[in-house]
Simulated scan of single mutants.
Amino acid sequence: MAASHLDPLLAEAERRAVALVLRAHLDWTLGDVFEHLYNGPRGPALRQVTIGELLDDPEGEALALPMDGGPLIDRRRLELAKRAHGANFDDYLYRVLAEAEGDVAACYLTARVGGPPWKLRKGLKRLIEAGKAERKGKTSTTRYRALDAEAP
């Protein structure tokens, strides 16, 4: 993955991680937070967190640690992808494939774009037919990867 793609992902992950830490420390005072804003190494990320973000995630996590060893799961993108259809869903699916390092299984994709199995299969079929993805293997050994991963 090119550094130009990686930097914004890391910055967004850091900003969301800071929001998670703030939500987990309800005993911290605004003075504690302001001290970190100006003197802490996470100050730039902390300055971008909104009050709405702190209150808007009652389930607890905007990012989730996956069970598959892959990168953090962006729950906001997951929820948007679940509601997407057709070409819009395919765009989310392709982005996840393009961000993945190497070949991935269907369970990896489902954890990041959600939806029923038929929706994932149809999206993957469209991407393969369009020359944007490749399928390898059969049944439980099936893996997918993005082709032309430089395209967003």
Rank of each mutant, 00 (worst) to 15 (best):
R15I: 10
E35W: 03
L20E: 14
L109K: 10
E61P: 08
D148P: 00
D103S: 05
A100F: 04
L109T: 10
L20I: 11
G60H: 09
R126E: 13
V113N: 07
P44L: 06
K138R: 15
L93K: 10
L20W: 08
K82R: 15
P117A: 15
T50F: 04
A87Q: 14
T142H: 00
S140L: 08
R121V: 09
A19G: 13
A13G: 11
D32E: 02
L97F: 05
L72Q: 09
L54T: 05
D56N: 13
K132S: 09
T50M: 02
G137P: 06
R75E: 12
K82P: 07
V49D: 04
W118A: 15
L120E: 10
L20V: 13
G123H: 10
A133M: 10
L93V: 06
R135Y: 04
M67F: 09
A2D: 09
L37A: 09
A149C: 00
L20M: 11
G123Y: 10
D91W: 04
K136G: 02
P58I: 04
L97M: 01
H85Y: 11
N88S: 14
K136S: 01
D90I: 07
R23I: 02
A111D: 15
D27N: 06
G131W: 04
L9M: 06
F34Q: 14
L22T: 13
L10M: 05
A64H: 01
A11C: 05
M67R: 15
R47V: 07
W28P: 05
N39I: 05
L63A: 01
L93D: 07
P44H: 02
K138W: 08
H36D: 07
L10R: 11
D91Q: 13
L46E: 06
A13Y: 05
R42I: 13
E35P: 00
R42F: 13
R76Q: 08
L46K: 09
M67S: 14
L26D: 13
N88E: 15
I51G: 03
R145I: 04
I51C: 01
R16V: 12
L97E: 01
G31L: 03
L46S: 04
L9R: 13
R135V: 04
D91K: 05
E14Q: 14
L37W: 04
G70K: 03
A19I: 11
V104M: 00
M67T: 14
S140Q: 14
R121A: 15
E99F: 03
L20A: 15
L54Q: 11
T142Y: 00
G40H: 07
G137I: 01
L22G: 08
A111I: 00
L147G: 02
N88H: 13
A133F: 08
A81I: 10
K138H: 08
P66E: 14
E61I: 08
P8A: 06
E79K: 06
P116S: 11
G114P: 14
R95I: 00
L54V: 12
R47H: 07
P117C: 13
L124N: 12
E12H: 10
A87K: 15
K132V: 01
G86R: 15
A87F: 12
G69M: 03
Q48G: 00
P44G: 08
D68S: 14
T50I: 00
E134P: 00
A105F: 07
R95C: 00
P66Y: 05
A106Y: 07
V33I: 07
A45F: 04
R112L: 03
E53C: 06
A17F: 12
I128N: 03
H36S: 08
L80R: 11
K122P: 02
G70V: 01
E12W: 13
G102Q: 04
R47F: 02
A146L: 00
